Deep mutational scan, measured.
Amino acid sequence: SGWQYDTQCSLAGVGIEMGDWQEVWDENTGCYYYWNTQTNEVTWELPQYLATQVQGLQHYQP
């Protein structure tokens, strides 16, 4: 899939279920990364769990 979410945008106002994931701001890069509080996994790309929800939002315009 060529769909890419801009990680400089916060998910805070989007209104999706974050589940075990937390969004963390990284000052050095000026982007958010994502931290799974259960598994301690850290990812710079939007986790599939969140990406599926964001893509499903009608009002979200990339």
Results as ranks from 00 to 15, higher is better:
residue 45 E to A: 08
residue 39 T to D: 09
residue 33 Y to E: 04
residue 32 Y to A: 03
residue 28 N to L: 07
residue 13 G to S: 09
residue 37 T to A: 13
residue 55 Q to L: 08
residue 10 S to K: 04
residue 5 Y to K: 10
residue 16 I to N: 02
residue 57 L to T: 11
residue 23 E to A: 00
residue 16 I to R: 01
residue 13 G to R: 08
residue 11 L to I: 11
residue 57 L to C: 06
residue 15 G to L: 02
residue 4 Q to I: 15
residue 6 D to P: 01
residue 23 E to S: 01
residue 27 E to T: 08
residue 15 G to I: 02
residue 11 L to M: 02
residue 6 D to F: 03
residue 10 S to I: 03
residue 22 Q to L: 06
residue 12 A to W: 02
residue 9 C to H: 09
residue 15 G to E: 08
residue 32 Y to S: 03
residue 38 Q to V: 10
residue 4 Q to P: 02
residue 28 N to E: 11
residue 22 Q to P: 00
residue 56 G to H: 08
residue 18 M to V: 02
residue 47 P to A: 00
residue 2 G to P: 09
residue 4 Q to F: 15
residue 30 G to V: 08
residue 5 Y to F: 10
residue 39 T to L: 04
residue 41 E to W: 05
residue 39 T to E: 05
residue 62 P to G: 12
residue 26 D to S: 12
residue 51 A to M: 07
residue 59 H to V: 09
residue 7 T to K: 12
residue 36 N to W: 00
residue 23 E to Q: 04
residue 2 G to N: 15
residue 34 Y to R: 02
residue 56 G to R: 13
residue 2 G to F: 14
residue 55 Q to I: 06
residue 62 P to M: 15
residue 42 V to N: 08
residue 39 T to H: 05
residue 7 T to M: 05
residue 11 L to F: 01
residue 6 D to N: 12
residue 11 L to P: 02
residue 61 Q to N: 10
residue 38 Q to C: 12
residue 46 L to S: 01
residue 41 E to G: 04
residue 15 G to S: 10
residue 43 T to I: 01
residue 20 D to K: 06
residue 44 W to N: 14
residue 50 L to Y: 01
residue 58 Q to V: 07
residue 61 Q to P: 08
residue 60 Y to V: 14
residue 60 Y to F: 14
residue 40 N to Q: 11
residue 2 G to E: 15
residue 55 Q to K: 09
residue 35 W to P: 00
residue 27 E to H: 15
residue 14 V to H: 10
residue 53 Q to V: 01
residue 30 G to A: 10
residue 56 G to K: 13
residue 52 T to L: 11
residue 15 G to W: 01
residue 13 G to M: 09
residue 47 P to Q: 00
residue 43 T to C: 12
residue 8 Q to E: 14
residue 61 Q to T: 15
residue 52 T to S: 13
residue 18 M to D: 00
residue 60 Y to K: 13
residue 13 G to W: 02
residue 29 T to K: 15
residue 36 N to S: 03
residue 53 Q to L: 04
residue 19 G to F: 01
residue 36 N to H: 07
residue 8 Q to P: 03
residue 45 E to S: 10
residue 35 W to L: 10
residue 34 Y to K: 01
residue 57 L to G: 09
residue 37 T to S: 13
residue 52 T to C: 07
residue 44 W to C: 11
residue 51 A to N: 07
residue 61 Q to D: 12
residue 18 M to L: 06
residue 10 S to Q: 03
residue 34 Y to H: 00
residue 59 H to E: 14
residue 57 L to N: 08
residue 11 L to C: 04
residue 40 N to T: 10
residue 48 Q to N: 11
residue 36 N to K: 02
residue 29 T to L: 12
residue 12 A to P: 04
residue 40 N to F: 05
residue 61 Q to R: 10
residue 28 N to W: 06
residue 24 V to N: 07
residue 50 L to K: 01
residue 38 Q to F: 05
residue 51 A to D: 05
residue 11 L to K: 04
residue 26 D to E: 09
residue 26 D to A: 08
residue 24 V to S: 07
residue 46 L to N: 02
residue 5 Y to A: 04
residue 40 N to D: 09
residue 28 N to T: 09
residue 34 Y to I: 04
residue 19 G to V: 00
residue 50 L to N: 00
residue 16 I to D: 01
residue 59 H to N: 13
residue 15 G to F: 02
residue 62 P to F: 10
residue 35 W to C: 15
residue 42 V to I: 08
residue 35 W to E: 15
residue 46 L to A: 04
residue 1 S to I: 07
residue 51 A to E: 06
residue 44 W to H: 07
residue 51 A to C: 09
residue 41 E to P: 01
residue 29 T to S: 14
residue 17 E to F: 07
residue 25 W to R: 06
residue 54 V to R: 02
residue 56 G to P: 08
residue 8 Q to H: 13
residue 60 Y to L: 14
residue 17 E to W: 04
residue 3 W to A: 12
residue 55 Q to S: 08
residue 50 L to C: 04
residue 29 T to M: 10
residue 21 W to N: 00
residue 5 Y to P: 03
residue 46 L to I: 07
residue 46 L to H: 02
residue 41 E to H: 03
residue 24 V to F: 09
residue 47 P to G: 00
residue 59 H to T: 15
residue 53 Q to K: 08
residue 2 G to I: 15
residue 50 L to H: 01
residue 5 Y to H: 11
residue 12 A to R: 10
residue 38 Q to R: 13
residue 30 G to I: 13
residue 38 Q to P: 03
residue 56 G to C: 07
residue 62 P to I: 07
residue 10 S to P: 08
residue 4 Q to T: 15
residue 55 Q to R: 10
residue 27 E to C: 08
residue 24 V to K: 15
residue 58 Q to D: 06
residue 25 W to K: 12
residue 36 N to T: 00
residue 17 E to D: 15
residue 19 G to A: 10
residue 38 Q to T: 15
residue 19 G to H: 02
